[in-house]
Amino acid sequence: MIGYFSPVALILVALVCLAMVRLVLGPTPADRAVAVDTVNTLIVAVLILLGVVYRQIIFIDVAIVYALLSFVSTLFIAKYIGGEL
């Protein structure tokens, strides 16, 4: 069963690279913020899958902290875009 997880992690990393295209192209700052938010979500999913593949539970703790910290950074980027900071 464990063999299913690593190909899916690889596919998700390829999707992160595709989201980077929007990060480079994005005409407005808000587009780039959306792309960064998407990349963060996918990275959390990849970390969870890698935690299973390498049998390291610490990866999943890292994923929890990463999700919460990326949320804080997204809030600050959004405030900055809206001109309230």
Partner: peptide
């Protein structure tokens, strides 16, 4: 993993709402 999934679902909805609000204000 359950805790990570719950944190992800909550923070994503809030973050996208914040970006939408900021984008409209800018």
């Amino acid at each position: 993993t359950l805790i990570a999934a719950v944190a992800l679902a909550f923070t994503n909805a809030l973050g996208s709402h914040a970006i939408a609000r900021g984008a409209h204000r800018s």
